[in-house]
Computed example of a mutant assay.
Amino acid sequence: MEKGNVTLEVENNIGTITFTHPQSNTLPSQLLELLTHTLTNAGKDDSIKVIILKSGGNKAFCAGANFDELISISDFEMGHNFFLGFANVINAIRLCPKLVIGRVQGKTVGGGVGLAAAADYCLACTSAMIKLSELTIGIGPFVIAPVVERKIGFSALSQLTINATEWKNPEWAKSKGLYAEVYETTDELDEAVNKLAVQLSRSNPEAMRSLKKMFWKNTENWNELLSEQAAISGKLVLSDFSKKAIENFKSKMVKK
């Protein structure tokens, strides 16, 4: 549990994938690999008709990249492979033949916004504010940019990317298409997520597979595209600017 975990529970043709990490559900490479593997296997499981993607706890949905691992990156290959982990999760959702419902209960940053955008349908709580903070540590949301832009458009993506210290509230995210609906409480959120999942679990699997292909039209080159984007971040994270910025961020967190 100290390194985080990913679980898959299957009930009544609904597969619920939950990722957890003690540091606000950050995503180190080991967890990204496990999440990719779990999503891929769920897509192949005939007993699963629809997938719910969620994180553990009632606070942050996902704090994005794990800073302990970011600061340990010492060469380009390590950096590329780390950011490729986010690309692999996005591609696993993209290639999964099942519809994926995102359940966002709290704040989400960076790669967590990418997960919400990759979900085929995303529901959130009023505490689910979003931020792309990558520029503050000398990199950028290069890997998740294609999937975020696909969901909310170029203008909204650029606003999030450039104003990297500002939180956007869930209503803003809903107005841009990231969230389909926003609920006052987690109980209401869970009720809505479960209701939709049950509805989809009773729908025609072949029709849903065809819809999924339609939704992700023109993304056939994303294996290569996201790898190229990961290489940009993998190079930038080695800069002196990024190293110092990450160290400063970590020291502030320790003082808190």
Results as ranks from 00 to 15, higher is better:
N25H: 10
E206W: 10
F215Q: 08
L123C: 07
L8N: 03
I246H: 01
P28F: 11
K235S: 10
L211Q: 13
S158M: 15
K255M: 09
I51Y: 09
T36H: 08
F76V: 06
F67V: 12
V109W: 09
A87N: 08
L226K: 00
N41W: 06
S55A: 08
A231I: 02
D68G: 15
K252A: 05
V237R: 04
Q199H: 15
V50I: 14
M129D: 13
K195D: 07
P146L: 08
F19V: 07
L178Q: 06
F82Y: 15
C62Y: 03
T16S: 06
M78D: 06
N223G: 09
P205C: 03
E247F: 09
P141R: 03
S233G: 05
V237Y: 04
N13G: 05
L123E: 06
R94K: 15
K131T: 08
G85Q: 04
M214Q: 13
C96M: 11
S29M: 08
N12C: 01
K217P: 00
A119C: 15
L225N: 06
I162R: 11
A180P: 02
A128E: 12
L178C: 08
L70G: 02
G15M: 02
L39N: 02
W216Q: 00
G234C: 05
E224Q: 12
A118H: 06
I93M: 14
S47D: 10
G79Y: 01
W216Y: 13
T18Q: 11
K255E: 07
